[in-house]
Write a protein that binds this DNA or RNA. Sequence first.
DNA 1: GCCTGTCACTCCAATATTGACAGGTCGAAA
DNA 2: TTTCGACCTGTCAATATTGGAGTGACAGGC
Lengths: 206, 206
Amino acid sequence: MSLRNALLGLLVFRPGSGYDLLKMFDTSLGYVWPAKQSQIYGELTKLDATGLIKVTEEGPRGRKQYSLTPEGHAETLRWLSETRESRPLRNPMLLQTFFLGLLPREEAVQRLLDHAETSAKEHDTLVSLRDTEEWDKDMLTVCGRLVLEHGIRQRVLEQEWAHWAAEQLRSGHAEGPGTTGTETADADTTGPGVVADSTDQAHSGR
Amino acid sequence: MSLRNALLGLLVFRPGSGYDLLKMFDTSLGYVWPAKQSQIYGELTKLDATGLIKVTEEGPRGRKQYSLTPEGHAETLRWLSETRESRPLRNPMLLQTFFLGLLPREEAVQRLLDHAETSAKEHDTLVSLRDTEEWDKDMLTVCGRLVLEHGIRQRVLEQEWAHWAAEQLRSGHAEGPGTTGTETADADTTGPGVVADSTDQAHSGR
DNA sequence: GCCTGTCACTCCAATATTGACAGGTCGAAA
DNA sequence: TTTCGACCTGTCAATATTGGAGTGACAGGC
């Protein structure tokens, strides 16, 4: 539902074609809400049908320039004032981290360090983006910068955390299933009864 | 594709039913990869069909206990070693922030402060979770703690950032479209020609 | 005139996710 | 004994997202 609002939001500032919007997603908005071309065009069609935007001009190669209708403008303001229910965000990296104990310790550590390095690179990219003047051209300057700053801080956090986590594992409690060799894929990594079954499960043991 | 791996990952440690897994998503894994009941059951069926897991036991109320097959175990290890392509994560909060300039300044500031407060609450929840012993029962202790720590640091970041951002807006450059009244929903908030059109757009002006 | 690159849109199949509904079992308390 | 609150499984429609194919128009350089 938010792609829709992202598009409306962009169109508040200036009318634009699907292609224009796509470019903006690629260069800026996509950092916080990625969207593919097929999704953008599809959503624009729907928004047009709903009456939140309309075609105000047709250009060279079938180019359609969309603008907000008053309803679209209202909808955007409504959306902005709406209370967000803070649902947890999907994070593939953390998901993998959750199960990192299944890898041999050095590999697990390496994975974390890789993450730190990736984050460092992204950090540098964002910083140089911040310090560039061109930026003002296609970003919604003030608030765009807030978002950018968030990204930068985020990358710093990722690095610090990853190094800390790697250290945790290295100096780690010997406890982990840790060194599950790649060769023996035995099912009883944890052994039986590691976890006390809760309530009803006692049945199945019978 | 990752829900699948999340399920496999959980099943490495102990066999379990859809219901068991659902509970784990609700209490732990769901913080980094939310999933609904309907999705979990569906995915389990698919995994069973693929041969990555199998039913090893049937319990009281039609309960089916799934276990990993050797293939499932292998798949999990493969997934863990796989290089993640770091795609930007969707973040509704940042998306809204991007367009916060459309709200009157005080409201925008308030939104940010609300976010700080929400994060503070979540922070406390996570901290108390960390300091609880029961935690060890259903979490994959070592790595689970790494993930938890990430969550805690994240919430600290959110608070710091939100306060910083709020300050930025408050002391802000008067420039912003800022004080768009709620009453007059006029379309020309930005006025014409704010942004220099790039390349091809010149056509449309003709 | 031809070629290449960019612009610009449409359509589609596959998969992922949400939200809601439906239905049955068991244990314990009232 | 009934009833209630877990427990436990499923299905469905709607929507969101990904990834790609296919099409044609226009501009500039050769």
